[in-house]
Each structure stands twice: as structure tokens, then as C-alpha cells.
Design a protein around this nucleic acid. Structure first.
Length: 635
RNA sequence: GCCGGAGUAGCUCAGUGGUAGAGCAGUUGAUUCGUAAUCAUCAGGUCGGGAGUUCAAAUCUCCCCUCCGGCUCCA
């Protein structure tokens, strides 16, 4: 046993001897929290024998790996509970996922919400019995026979895809599952779990396959962390932009208008306008030209671009006087036509066309989700047309733009490179070149990034940027997509320094992505309490009695003409009510006008945290707002 | 599109086959008030839409629309 090393992190570990199990060498201090181990990084059960050689490390229940194992084991317990309650249910797969686990079942009768409670209760009973998880290794053929006997056809299908000679089965209580492991040693270790929802899910994620019933749940090392997780879910509900959008009177979706088509109310429009104005100014500053294209373009143009073949099922079409038109799902076509409107020299390049372009995409009905997934939305879209030599610098320029914008809005983000998908156009060489360019730019900037194989757009590879919001959720916004195909299809050319006709390359890119979607993210990120910079109203003037209205009127006019977004509440109501309503509306500053303010000629700003600033002159308040508004100030 | 759940007043919700309800919001009136809800008054509904069963449907059945949670897809 001289070759076994135990990573003990300062704990006293028993000397490994022949015949000992991994569980036997766990330091006494860790007995309660260790649920599995690794040998040379390979996960392994505590019930395995200590190996001849290798380095053993322990996985505790509160580590990320430990929690994953705990959840995976809990999914087995759930499958046991389900099968004991509904014997004609076939089991399929049940992995741990981010924040929980699920198990997919093929059941003749769909589960109902009430079933969740019953399953939970049964799971509680099973856990109380504290059955050990027992691993058994057997030849594949024996495993096939075993599951055949049980009628578990999905397991047989899974086995047919496994190349190894042997597989492992785990048994706890009355339930045996095909599983790689590892698992917790005994079901009694599950201290806190909850089943959260039921959903349909296709077998192996393919919509051609049968739809199974998926039960979602989660498990935690202790009750407190489970409660913390449930509180976070509540918090997400509280921030839901669909709810806040209605409460704050920002926008609506209307059955009569159509699903997925946002309608912006005055305050929502103001919010968008402020952000759009900022984006326009920033694009001009960075050498973009602002352009505008029509919403519908002839179908033949979409055929030429490849959208008709590759994107048709997502497009709306219309016919006027026998002429077919496609409603744009992307903004590139008009931009191509602008480029082609005259002969271009290499001296003109790069050309950067920016459009706040409103597009329509026919998204499947089940995927709509407020502003985050709509059928009409406006992109902060640009197409950069440049020489192949300029490509890398242009990509870096966009990356810099994204970095700046994310900083302005206060979002951290990460990056992903997506490569060629199955359904795509263009030559292998072009794809290779484009992918290399993106990779090179990322590496030149020394940026960390993940790779998503096969996840590119149909016309080219892309870099996606994912931002992280206040409660840790990730959202995709910015994207840079390389395109060698559209310049080809539209025969874009420029004259280079030798007088020769050359083919330019093109980048599609967005920074915020969809303005609508970004707005939804902002609403959830700030829980509706927007920073002064882009809050629809920055201040509301409240009078205490009618005597204070004339001065209140002065304040309103003075601040308004200075460029502040301010409104008044001069109603004959008690101050408490007016303060409450301003608070509920989440207006950053409430300016209360009473006797002393009228006499002193000041305003006393109350903030959303309930605290007051010292009374100040109006000019001081204007300056205060100006400073706080940062890049959004346009006064 | 698929699976499950839901749709009752502007909003949040109660109402399981027998006369549609509450709170908030709204109206009108009184109150002139110093930091999260003053009191009273009146009004408000093709119970998502259509068809069917029944003496009788918000309630039962079928079709459609929309929303919610997922799957697939995606900004």
C-alpha cells in the first residue's frame, strides 16, 4: 500500500491496509460530511476497495461535486418512489443538473401536481429506511437480460449505445438503475430535498421521439441551503419583468394584437428611448453610420440571401399586387443594398452600418416569454464590411464596444465561440477562415472563452457574450458573427490598391442584442428600481398642502427645463399616501415641498431607501442628478 | 409545435350544476394633512371565445385563443 497517497488536508487519516474500503480511510473529522471520493481525479464510491496505487481525495457533501452526487442519488430515490407507486412506469434517465435534478419517466398516465406531494412523501419514507446504495458490476449482456426481465426498454436502448464490456448497476431498496455513479453510501444522507415541477420532455431531447414526463426536484446538504434556494426562486418571481412591466406601466402584451408582440406604454418607451439614444451616440462615436431599412423586402431577395432556404419557417410573408414580400427577421439585406449603391474603394473600408432595426420572427408558440422571447423586437444591429486584413481589428473593436457597454450597465459577462452547425451554407475553407479569425481575436485579447461546437449561425461562426445579472442568472446579449457568404451571394466588391476587384468580408454584430430583451433583463436585474440615469421619471414633486403648489410648480418647471424627467403630484392627499405611491412606482427621488422648502427655496430629496438628503437648492439637485446619470445625461 | 397547469371586475383572488363576490385601483363628496395606504359614496362582469349536454353551466364535454412551467428552438 506504499503507493497510495491520501490527500488529507491536515486531517489524521488511517493508514491504508489491504482489504480496506475507501470509506475506512476517511479522516474521523470528515466522517459525517464525506460522501464519495476520487482516485487520481476519477469519482469513486466510498464502498470501493482502496486501490493498489493512486491518490485519494475526498468529496464532501457541501462541495460542488458532493452536491451533484447528492442530487443524482436523490433522483434515484425519486425513481424508486415513482416506481413503487406506479408500477407500470418505465424509467429512463435522471441526472443532476444546475440547481437540482430530474428524472424522465414513460408513464401511461401523466403526473399531476398532486402527485408531486405524494411522491415527495414516499421519498421521505424511503429515505427514513436508510437503504445503502449498492454497486454491482456485470457484463453488458447480463445487464440487458436483467432490464429485459423488468421490461425497462429504455435502459436496454441505453445499453445498446455503450461500448464497454461491463456496466455498473446501483441498487437501493427495491430499485436498481443502470448508472455510472458514484452515489452517496446510503439514502439516509439526504437531509433536504423538494420536488419542484412536472414537465414534458422528449426522449433523448429529440422532438421526433416520444414525450416523457419529467419530474424536477432539488436537494441540498441541509435544510437552510434548500430554504435559501427556494427564497432565490421567490426573488426571481418578484423580479419577473412581465409582472413588473404591468405594475410599473411599462408595456403590455395583448391577445387581440397577437402573441409575442410587445406594446410599449409611455414609461416603457421613455426607458427604451434613453438607452437607444445612448447607443446611437456611442455608435457614432465609434465610427458607425446610422442607417434605416424597410420592414418588408421582396421574397426574391430573401431567396438570394439564403434566408428563404434556411430561415423560412421563422419568417412572416405577405403578398401585395401579386408580389411576394418577406417581413425581415434580420436587418442585413438593406445594409447590403446600401453597400452596393455605389462602387467601393479599399479606402472606404471598413464601413459600419448601424440600425435599430425592428424584426419579426415567427417563434413557436410555446417558447414565447415576455420581452425575453418575443415575435417582434428591435436589434441594435450593425454590419461591418471590411477587407480580410481588417477583420481581426474589427472583431477586437466590437469586443471592446461590448466590454464598455457592459461596464456602463454594470454586468459581468463571459464569452463563447460557436462553430459550424449542420444546417449551414458556405465552403469549408470560408468557415475555417472565419472561425480562425474569431479565435485569433479572442486570443490576441487574452480573453477566456468556451467553445460551443456546431452552435454557429447558418452563415457563419460567432462569438456570443453572456452577461450575469444581480441574482446570478446568465443571459445572452451581444454576438459577433463572421460571414463570408453574404458578400459572395450579393456579389459585394471593392477596388483594392492595385485596381483589382476584391471580395470584402462581413461581420454581423449586436451589443445589447434585442432592445426589448435587454429591457426585460434590466427590469429583472434592478427589480424595476432603475438607476437615475435611465429611470423613466427621475423625480416626483410632492406638495404637502395646496398652499405649496405655486412653489411646486416652479420646481417642476425649473427641473424640467434643465432636462430632468420629473412629474408632479399636487393632489389633495395625505403626504404618506403620495410618498407610498412614488415608492411603489420606484421613482428614484421624491421631492417633498412643505412650508420650510417654500421659505428657503429648497427641495428635500427622499430616496427609495427611505432616507432624505439634506435640503438643497434646485441647481444643486440638478447637478446631483447630472452626476448620478453618468453617460445617460443629455440635459 | 409537443407535454402539464391555468384564464372570474383594471390588478390580486374567492366562488364544484340553482340570483356572480371581496380587497386594492377607479368615481363622487368631505378632509388641507411633513416621509409606505384619511373617511364615506357610487359604479364596475358577453365568468377568454365558440359549440354541445342539461329544466338550469363560471362550474360538465369538445374545439379554438391566450398565459404559466418545461421540452425542442433561440436575440
Amino acid at each position: 500500500m506504499a503507493h497510495v497517497k491520501i490527500q488529507n488536508r491536515g486531517y489524521q487519516t488511517p493508514e491504508p491496509k489491504a482489504g480496506m474500503l475507501i470509506g475506512d480511510v476517511v479522516p474521523v473529522e470528515l466522517k459525517k460530511s464525506v460522501i464519495a471520493a476520487t482516485v487520481d481525479g476519477r469519482p469513486i464510491d466510498l464502498s470501493e476497495k482502496v486501490p493498489e496505487r493512486g491518490e485519494i481525495a475526498f468529496i464532501t457533501i457541501d462541495s460542488p461535486e458532493g452536491i451533484e452526487i447528492l442530487r443524482h442519488s436523490t433522483s434515484h430515490i425519486m425513481a424508486e418512489a415513482v416506481q413503487s407507486m406506479f408500477p407500470d412506469v418505465k424509467v429512463t434517465i435522471g441526472p443532476a443538473i444546475e440547481n437540482g435534478f430530474y428524472y424522465d419517466f414513460d408513464t401511461p398516465r401523466p403526473f399531476e401536481p398532486e402527485d408531486l406531494e405524494k411522491i415527495e412523501k414516499r421519498m421521505g419514507e424511503i429515505i427514513k429506511q436508510n437503504h445503502p446504495f449498492v454497486k454491482k458490476i456485470l457484463p453488458i449482456q447480463e445487464a440487458v437480460e436483467y432490464f429485459k426481465g423488468k421490461g425497462e426498454t429504455y435502459k436496454i436502448e441505453l445499453l445498446s449505445g455503450i461500448q464497454d464490456e461491463t456496466v455498473s448497476l446501483y441498487t437501493q431498496g427495491s430499485f436498481t438503475d443502470l448508472c455510472r455513479g458514484p452515489h452517496i453510501s446510503s439514502s439516509g444522507l439526504i437531509k433536504a430535498f423538494k420536488l419542484t415541477s412536472i414537465a414534458g420532455a422528449y426522449w433523448r431531447g429529440d422532438e421526433k421521439n416520444k414525450m416523457l414526463q419529467r419530474v424536477y426536484g432539488t436537494a441540498f446538504p441541509d435544510k437552510e441551503s434548500l430554504q435559501q434556494h427556494l427564497t432565490l426562486l421567490e426573488e426571481a418571481k418578484r423580479r419577473d419583468h412581465r409582472k413588473l412591466g404591468r405594475e410599473l406601466d411599462l408595456f403590455q402584451f395583448n391577445d387581440d394584437a397577437g402573441a409575442g408582440l410587445p406594446i410599449y406604454h409611455p414609461k416603457g418607451t421613455m426607458l427604451r428611448m434613453i438607452i437607444e439614444d445612448f447607443m446611437k451616440a456611442e455608435h457614432l462615436r465609434r465610427g458607425y453610420d446610422i442607417v434605416m431599412g424597410p420592414v418588408i423586402l421582396k421574397q426574391e431577395l430573401w431567396e438570394r440571401s439564403g434566408h428563404f432556404d434556411n430561415y423560412r419557417e421563422n419568417m412572416y410573408f405577405t403578398e401585395v399586387e401579386g408580389q411576394r414580400y418577406g417581413i425581415k427577421p434580420m436587418n442585413c439585406l438593406a445594409h447590403m443594398l446600401i453597400y452596393k449603391s455605389r462602387l467601393r474603394s479599399y479606402r472606404d473600408l471598413p464601413l459600419r452600418y448601424f440600425e435599430l432595426g425592428t424584426v419579426h420572427r415567427h417563434e413557436k408558440s410555446g417558447v414565447l416569454h415576455g420581452l425575453l422571447r418575443a415575435r417582434a423586437f428591435t436589434q441594435d444591429d450593425a454590419h461591418i464590411i471590411c477587407t480580410p486584413e481588417q477583420l481581426i481589428d474589427e472583431i477586437v473593436g466590437v469586443m471592446d464596444f461590448v466590454a464598455y457597454t457592459m461596464e456602463v450597465f454594470g454586468f459581468p459577462y463571459s464569452m463563447e465561440l460557436s462553430t459550424r452547425p449542420e444546417k449551414s451554407i458556405g465552403s469549408d475553407e470560408d468557415w475555417e477562415r472565419a472561425t480562425e479569425a474569431l479565435k485569433f481575436a479572442l486570443e490576441r485579447q487574452k480573453q477566456e472563452y468556451a467553445v460551443n461546437e456546431g452552435d454557429g449561425a447558418f452563415y457563419g461562426p460567432k462569438i456570443d457574450f453572456k452577461l450575469r445579472d444581480a441574482i446570478g442568472r446568465q443571459w445572452q446579449c451581444a454576438t459577433i458573427q463572421c460571414d463570408f457568404t453574404l458578400p459572395e451571394r450579393f456579389d459585394l466588391t471593392y477596388i483594392d490598391s492595385t485596381g483589382e476587384k476584391k471580395r470584402p468580408v462581413m461581420l454581423h454584430r449586436v451589443i445589447l442584442g434585442s432592445m426589448d430583451r435587454f429591457l426585460g433583463i434590466l427590469i429583472e436585474h434592478y427589480a424595476g428600481a432603475f438607476p437615475v440615469g435611465f429611470a423613466p421619471f427621475q423625480a416626483v414633486v410632492l406638495t404637502i398642502t395646496d398652499d405649496h403648489i405655486p412653489f411646486g410648480q416652479d420646481v417642476l418647471e425649473r427641473l424640467g427645463s434643465a432636462g430632468l424627467r420629473v412629474r408632479a403630484d399636487f393632489r389633495n392627499e395625505k403626504l404618506g399616501l403620495k410618498v407610498r405611491e412614488a415608492q411603489v412606482e420606484k421613482i428614484p427621488y421624491t421631492l417633498i415641498i412643505g412650508k420650510s422648502e417654500v421659505t428657503e427655496g429648497t427641495v428635500t430629496p427622499r430616496m427609495l431607501n427611505g432616507k432624505n438628503l439634506d435640503p438643497m437648492k434646485m441647481d444643486e439637485f440638478i447637478e446631483h442628478i447630472k452626476n448620478e446619470s453618468s453617460v445617460f445625461w443629455r440635459g
